[in-house]
Design a protein around this nucleic acid. Structure first.
Length: 882
RNA sequence: GACUCCGUAGCUCAGCUGGGAGAGCGCUACCUUGACAGGGUAGAGGUCGUUGGUUCGAGCCCAAUCGGAGUCACCA
């Protein structure tokens, strides 16, 4: 075929070839850069900045693909889109990775290098990792504006961090104090509450009897952490507890240690639990700390920062806390103090990062006073201006957390991060907090700690836009952002904090919508994790099946808020979809015959399939646009899939061949235009889902503009909305399906021509069928087609019934009458049931009176149709049995 | 202990404001039809966890219950 010469699409869909150079084409065209065009409405998204040392995993791919899909559609809809990229310095995570590398390559610790040199080393690593992440973003096809890329430790963001810290300090919303915090002995830093993961652990419950001074009595207490007894400074009982009332105020000689501690009364103690007496260790337990404050108790810290016992542990000094536990249990048992050990399942806190058992530990740290900030965020949700959570139920989790908020420990004993802008006077011990160091710097010492990574992340939507400079162009134009996309696992870490910081510092919510997605799991439903080794590298998926297939799989694989299981087979079937599009496009191109975009002409007289596919296109545009707007990517994607595969490929292209391969040049030209138009519009809609393949094909098709990324989004065209044609097409399709069915029944392949008789059930149907007979002839492969109400049907014929017509295929010698009668009886039974059901409904007074008129009307129509079909099948059975 | 989510065809999942169940993969039979055999055509397969309730009508709303997952808070 000579037309083949015009086709530049290779015969095979090759995702590697297609995707290879496309991203640089987009970047060079600057299609992803926000234009600042004031004729357009701004639309902005900030990327959740990935950890700079991390490799992007499938979760990132999912998260960013959604953002890309949204922003690509918005761009096509004419918005001035800013999708701002960036990365997070990720304090603990990064420091841990670099420390490990350092040990591995040079056998050195961070202390060997010293603070300054170590931080320099991290910066070097950072550049390398950042390049890698950008490369992965490119492979995914993300439309990011790299001219605005930010890093949480760059100058601008550091300035914002300091501004916020100083401001909150001056307002009294940041304070420094000595409290029990969560201490991670592995990384030797404090953690915030949400960085502690509680896991059920099979532990022990140790029961002890403490001797009371100058008495033979003992008091029974129990603990899960016996080593902390070294730091006990009291035993508490309930003031109303009759068992112990006489002991209040008496002294205990703390075993091993020998310290005298008092028995105090405190309401906190639950008389019902255990013995009703509690050992109090103010330096190692938050509740004990509170009790200690109320009773002015000493705070005896018995551990070092690395989890070993310190000098207050006496003979146990230097032992690891768990070694010490073993030893102390043994010693106490021998001394007869510890008299029982019980198995006990309880929740033990572990560091989110290191996995080490978190130690409640007395320490001086910086905190954010959360209540006022949280109150404001909660308040916002009672107004019309509230942040819109999708799905909505996550607003509940968010609010629940805010309503039970506790102060946020923000100092970390790390080197990699934003240094706390506080200085202590060497002599007076006075504290100075400010963006600039004190003038007489030689007399001061800066706080050695850095801030929690999330402290800077919380400012991300506005710090990236130029804040604290409120006159910054980007801040004025693109803040607040439109939507934030993230997983439910970081609602507390990040979403909540961005909201209260946004409110506090910009008086605005940082985003209008929050789209929450779930977690990616493996095929068995397990979380993907390093330890299980069940992680899947998105780059591997892209290599095998292409970014388009991966993206489509991720977008359509689940509903908002739900987890997603990864299945290779699903990605593979998505690849098949891409291949289908590829080949349908090849067909179209083979028939374009040099058509240009300007020559696309939809004014000519159209065939039935032309009118039908344009109507279906309208429906698809409506559906896809609405659902993408609602973030229902699954719904939109599936609708497109069905439209492309079933309607466009299986029906329209097949039927278009009639005019494309025919002699009527006018019809041919019209169909060619329709084909080009529908494909063009379809590719545009599919583009946010599968950017690479759609761009590749679109460039080959008659088109205008430099790139599909900046083509306009399709809108419904009422001029081509022909319901009547659609109904006729449906009827033709129904007839074709019935004939295929019969042919399969009697083993008569489509390649064999057959005679066919159509008996219309109305003059209207007669007219329509006559007009559309060409399609019926062609797709039923008839040798002779009779359309006649009074046609005489040979005795040996297979029959079927569709709305408006009875179908007969005279197939002498091929029919097994018994089988045919059985088949018809089965069908009769079906119609009997349907008729009975409709009749039951319609005879139900309640239904007729209360159901909406259109529903009742539809039922009445069904009744007529089913009764007609039943009658026809019945008659046919009579004939055959006669 | 509080709360949330899930339980629909063999498997993985859809099913929008309630009007009589869908897709992909898998399975069966047939088909080298001029874009595609990674394709086409026709099919089989579901008491929508269970029990009540509301309603003319429930997979969809309410209650209870069973099973699975998760979040938060926890008594030493």
């Amino acid at each position: 075929m000579s037309e083949n010469n015009h086709v530049n699409l290779p015969p095979k869909y090759d995702h590697v070839a297609i995707e290879r150079d496309r991203y640089s084409f987009w970047l060079e065209g600057k299609f992803f850069e926000a234009t600042g065009d004031t004729n357009k409405t701004p639309f902005s998204i900030v990327i959740p900045p990935p950890n700079v040392t991390g490799k992007l995993h499938l979760g990132h791919a999912w998260d960013t693909t959604m953002q890309d899909t949204i922003s690509r559609m918005k761009r096509m809809q004419g918005y001035d889109v800013l999708w701002l990229p960036g990365m997070d310095h990720a304090g603990i995570a990064t420091q841990a990775v670099v420390e490990a590398k350092l040990k591995e390559t040079e056998g050195k610790s961070r202390y060997d290098l010293g603070r300054e040199k170590f931080v320099d080393t991290v910066w070097e690593w950072k550049e390398e990792y950042a390049d890698h992440i950008r490369e992965q973003w490119g492979k995914l096809g993300l439309g990011l504006d790299y001219t605005r890329e930010r890093f949480t430790l760059d100058d601008g963001l550091s300035d914002a961090v300091q501004e916020v810290f100083v401001n909150l300090y001056e307002k009294g919303l940041i304070y420094r104090g000595e409290y029990i915090i969560n201490w991670d002995p592995a990384t030797k830093t404090a953690l915030s509450d949400i960085e502690v993961i509680y896991e059920e652990v099979n532990g022990k419950f140790y029961h002890m009897r403490y001797p009371i001074k100058d008495s033979d009595e003992t008091i029974e207490i129990a603990t899960t952490r016996p080593e902390t007894m070294l730091g006990d400074t009291a035993v508490a009982v309930h003031p109303e507890d009759e068992r112990y009332k006489h002991l209040i105020g008496k002294k205990i000689v703390l075993p091993i240690v020998g310290r005298e501690i008092e028995i105090v009364a405190d309401d906190y103690v639950d008389m019902e639990f255990g013995s009703g007496a509690v050992k109090i260790t103010p330096a190692h337990d938050p509740n004990d700390f509170e009790i200690g404050n109320r009773h002015n108790l000493d705070r005896v810290l018995v551990m070092n920062e690395d989890g070993t016992m310190n000098e207050n542990a006496g003979q146990y000094e230097g032992l690891d806390r768990f070694e010490c536990r073993k030893q102390i249990v043994k010693d106490l048992q021998e001394a007869g103090i510890l008299f029982d050990i019980e198995d006990h399942v309880h929740q033990v806190g572990h560091s989110e990062r290191s996995g080490a058992v978190v130690e409640p530990y007395l320490s001086t740290q910086w905190f954010v006073n959360m209540q006022p900030l949280a109150d404001r965020a909660v308040e916002l949700q009672n107004t019309k201006e509230k942040v819109n959570f999708v799905p909505n139920r996550f607003e509940g989790t968010y609010l629940h957390w805010l309503e039970n908020i506790r102060d946020w420990c923000i100092s970390r004993q790390l080197w990699w991060g934003h240094r706390i802008p506080a200085w202590y006077h060497k002599e007076t011990k006075e504290i100075y907090v400010g963006k600039e160091a004190p003038a007489d710097i030689e007399n001061w010492e800066q706080d050695s700690d850095v801030l929690d990574t999330w402290f800077s992340s919380a400012l991300w939507p506005f710090s990236t836009m130029g804040w604290p400079d409120e006159e910054s162009e980007d801040f004025k134009r693109y803040f607040p952002t439109d939507v934030l996309v993230t997983g439910y696992d970081i609602i507390f870490f990040w979403v909540a904090r961005m909201i209260f910081q946004g409110l506090e510092f910009t008086d605005e919510k940082p985003f209008k919508d929050v789209l929450i997605h779930g977690l990616i799991r493996d095929a068995e439903g397990r979380k993907m994790s390093k330890s299980l080794g069940n992680g899947v590298d998105p780059m591997e998926v892209i290599e095998k099946y292409g970014a388009d297939a991966l993206r489509y799989f991720l977008l359509t694989g689940s509903t908002p808020g739900q987890d997603l299981r990864f299945h290779w087979e699903k990605v593979e079937s998505t690849w098949n979809f891409a291949n289908k599009i590829w080949n349908a496009s090849r067909f179209a191109l083979m028939n374009m015959d040099g058509l240009t975009y300007e020559e696309i002409d939809l004014t000519g007289e159209m065939s039935l399939p032309d009118k039908w596919i344009l109507t279906r296109l309208n429906e698809t545009i409506e559906h896809v646009t609405m659902n993408t707007d609602k973030y229902e990517f699954g719904e939109a994607g599936r609708y497109l899939y069905n439209f492309i595969w079933d309607d466009f490929c299986d029906w329209y292209i097949e039927m278009a061949k009639i005019s494309l391969y025919g002699d009527d040049e006018t019809k041919k030209a019209t169909t060619r235009s329709v084909l080009a138009h529908v494909l063009d519009q379809t590719l545009r809609m599919l583009h946010p889902y599968m950017p690479f393949i759609t761009e590749e094909i679109w460039q080959q098709l008659p088109h205008e503009g430099a790139s599909i990324t900046v083509a306009t989004w399709p809108t419904v065209n009422n001029k081509f909305h022909d319901v009547e044609a659609s109904n006729q097409m449906e009827q033709v399709m129904a007839i074709i399906k019935s004939v295929r069915n019969i042919r399969a029944e009697v083993d008569t392949p489509m390649s064999r021509q057959v005679n066919m008789i159509l008996k219309p059930t109305s003059t209207e149907a007669l007219e329509q069928l006559s007009v559309n007979r060409l399609f019926i002839e062609r797709f039923c492969n008839t040798s002779e087609l009779t359309i006649d109400e009074d046609a005489i049907v040979p005795e040996q014929a297979m029959s079927a019934v569709v709305t408006g017509a009875e179908i007969f295929l005279p197939l002498e010698g091929l029919i097994d009458f018994e089988k045919e009668i059985a088949r018809l009886e089965k069908e009769l039974e079906k119609w009997n049931k349907e008729v009975a059901l409709v009749e039951k409904k319609l005879s139900n007074k309640g239904f007729v009176e209360k159901a909406p008129a259109q529903v009742v009307e539809a039922e009445k129509k069904k009744q007529i149709e089913y009764e007609e079909k039943r009658r026809i099948v019945q008659d046919r059975l009579h004939e055959l049995k006669a």
